[in-house]
């Protein structure tokens, strides 16, 4: 039908126990940086709008 028909068997490219998720680490670092930056930008809006008690 489409691509899934050519499902990969376990033999295709052996990836062993030594697989290290380097790309994943890069993505979570990028995610964290984006999170902190966007969150801080809203936090600064809060500060700029003045205190409420």
């Amino acid at each position: 039908m489409w691509e899934r028909k050519v499902a990969l068997s376990d033999q295709d490219t052996p990836v062993g126990e030594d697989f290290t998720p380097r790309g994943t680490v890069a993505i979570v670092i990028l995610f964290t940086a984006t999170l902190v930056l966007l969150w801080l930008s809203i936090y600064l809006i809060l500060i700029a709008r003045g205190v409420t008690t």
Partner: peptide
């Protein structure tokens, strides 16, 4: 790292809310 990050958020909003007067 996630736990430290979330704790940092919790402290930052508490300081703004209860010490700096940005209160709900």
């Amino acid at each position: 790292f996630s736990l430290v990050l979330l704790a940092a958020f919790a402290v930052t909003v508490a300081v703004a809310g209860f010490a700096l007067g940005f209160q709900v």
